[in-house]
């Protein structure tokens, strides 16, 4: 009772005093992770630039094709973020960058209230003003409000204040993701040579699965003690919760798994990575075949049992990775979601 799952945002602390294994065993894994994450940050930065360009084009010519393109570019960039969201160490820890990209959960509709306040202003903000404002105004959920909220009637977005607000947020997002990628590249040497980042990377993936099971699925589905509540799902305004989950599973598969396999192979345990990959692949396919939204599924018993299947598989993935962590001697420390 009375468990409120914490919002991830603080640096996860890992035990620097208890490295997993000898340095030579893990440097190779970190090299693979470094490259894969770098590429993913590149995809995120490029997608955010396309989103900004798309926002500018829509504001110049607010017609249906531009609008469709804008919605799609928002979704692509948001999914690109999901794919690399498991990286909760390094430059992403600076200036609450993860929250800048996605402030969530937002139980009390802070995003909605902050957006309404900006929309009521005479002038749209600059990107600098957005940078100095609440994290709730800076990321994908803020743009989602402008693109999908019921308060935004069909043509409101094309109005100067709304369009200016959207462009300022997209501009901040593109700047932020571009800086994130350069900072990651500057971080390369430190990441490659610091053993504790092997642990940190494993912890990041494990926490991503925990968050997926408990918060992104369990909370809105009413499986964590509270009632089912579609507003607790991510991207409820656009009805794209499952697409985001698919993005995370995809990212774990192509960004996290190769380094994990390297790590386990060097210990003669490649079969553990194969088992994990097999289940991850099945889970991702399942998510990909489901309808995009979570909230509508809560009232549809057939679809809900499918969603429960996804929840169960995510739980299995989490336990598999916990076991892998156990065989690697991973020690869990405090993290930002220890709390009520």
């Amino acid at each position: 009772m009375f468990k409120r799952l914490g919002r991830i945002g603080l640096a996860a602390l890992t035990l620097a005093t208890a490295p997993l294994m000898a340095n030579e065993d893990t440097a190779q894994a970190r090299e693979r992770w470094y490259q894969a994450i770098d590429q993913r940050y590149g995809v995120l930065s490029d997608a955010s630039e396309r989103l900004e360009a798309s926002a500018i084009r829509f504001c110049q010519q607010p017609d249906t094709p531009h609008r469709k393109r804008l919605n799609q570019d928002w979704m692509d960039a948001y999914q690109a973020w999901q794919a690399v969201r498991f990286v909760d160490f390094g430059p992403i820890e600076q200036q609450s960058r993860a929250w800048q990209l996605q402030f969530w959960p937002d139980r009390k509709n802070l995003v909605g209230r902050k957006m309404q306040a900006w929309l009521a202003a005479d002038q749209p903000p600059t990107a600098e003003q957005i940078a100095g404002d609440s994290v709730a105004t800076q990321g994908f959920p803020a743009l989602e409000y402008l693109l999908f909220d019921e308060h935004m009637k069909a043509n409101t977005l094309s109005q100067p204040v709304a369009c200016g607000l959207m462009k300022a947020i997209a501009n901040h997002l593109a700047d932020g993701t571009s800086a994130l990628r350069s900072d990651w590249q500057r971080f390369a040497e430190h990441y490659r040579t610091t053993r504790s980042y092997t642990d940190a990377t494993l912890h990041g993936a494990l926490r991503a699965l925990e968050t997926l099971e408990d918060k992104r699925l369990g909370d809105p589905m009413g499986l964590t003690g509270g009632a089912a509540n579609g507003y607790l799902a991510e991207a409820w305004r656009s009805g794209r919760s499952i697409r985001l989950i698919e993005g995370t599973l995809h990212g774990l598969e192509d960004t996290f798994l190769p380094g994990l396999k390297t790590l386990l192979s060097s210990r003669g345990q490649a079969e553990l990575a194969d088992d994990f990959r097999e289940l991850l692949d099945r889970t991702r396919h399942r998510a990909a075949e489901m309808s995009p939204g979570l909230a509508p599924i809560l009232d549809d018993s057939a679809a809900f049992s499918d969603l429960q299947g996804l929840y169960v598989q995510v739980g299995q993935l989490r336990r598999q990775l916990e076991e892998i962590g156990g065989t690697l001697g991973l020690v869990r420390g405090f993290n930002a979601s220890d709390g009520d």
């Binding site: 603080l10 602390l13 009520d340």
Partner: peptide, 8 residues
């Protein structure tokens, strides 16, 4: 210290 006071 971490999750509750500093974080939440």
């Amino acid at each position: 210290s971490l999750g509750e006071l500093a974080g939440e």
